[in-house]
Structures are given as C-alpha cells and as structure tokens.
Amino acid sequence: MSDKKIRILIGKPGLDGHDRGAKYIARALKDAGYEVIYTGLRQTPQSIVNTAIQEDVDFVGLSLLSGAHNSLFPKIVELLKENDAEDIIVFGGGVIPEDDIPNLKKQGVEEIFTPGTPIKDVVDFIESKREKVGK
C-alpha cells in the first residue's frame, strides 16, 4: 500500500527580492496536490542543493528575476550531480530571454517557464515526469 506524493522545492537563488512569482507558484502547486517547500530569499546554490537532498524532492523549481540565471541555474544542476542527486529534475522561471533557454537546457535545466506561463503548463510538465520520478 504505497502512498507516494510528488515533492517540489521552490528555490530563490541570487539576490533579487521579487518573490511574488515564487510564492504564487508554491501556493498554486500546493493547490494542485503536491507537497511544496519554499526556501525564502537569497539562497546560495549550495543551500538549495542541500535542501533538495534533505527534503528528497522530485523537482527543484528555481525563480530568478535579476538575470543571474546563466551562472546560478547550471551551478545548481552541477552541485546536484556532485551530490549524487542528478535524478532531481530542475526547472526554472523568471525573466529569462528566449536566447538563453537552449543553453540552459543543454546544461541540464529540464524546462524554463517564461513570464505569463499558466500554472497548468507547469502542472502538465510535472505530470509528464511522474513516471520518471517514480511516483
């Protein structure tokens, strides 16, 4: 009688303090039936990775509006790998120019949601990975 739940960490790396999007996503994913943990502001890549591991989440969603995504998102993917946790799926959102997306994906960020993405798209994305994360 296994009772599995998808767990998601919403992380805010970098220094920007605009957490409207992160909080909205956290709340909306909870309403979609997932267990959600939110890190709060100004997290280093290392603390996001440690949190993801301790909480054994299936996904890490990163929100960043300052433009630092090109260095911070791949750093987090890399640290997950180093910690034997590359199976945790990383996705991102925020002010991210189209041009940057291919490169982020190449570096292991599974999906990028640009501003205005309906929450349904995020849920569809998560559901499409349900099997992959074994839930």
Partner: peptide, 22 residues
C-alpha cells in the same frame, strides 16, 4: 546592481552571477 543594493562588494561570494545585472 543587487550586490550594491544589499551591501556586498563585487568580490563577495554572494555576488556571484549578479554583478552589473540589474
């Protein structure tokens, strides 16, 4: 930029990725 706004120098570890961005 954000490091300036939060009182970190550009060479601070917290500033990685943020220098000159916003």
């Amino acid at each position: 930029d954000l490091p300036t706004q939060i009182g970190y120098d550009s060479d601070d570890e917290m500033s990685i990725g943020e220098v000159g961005k916003v």
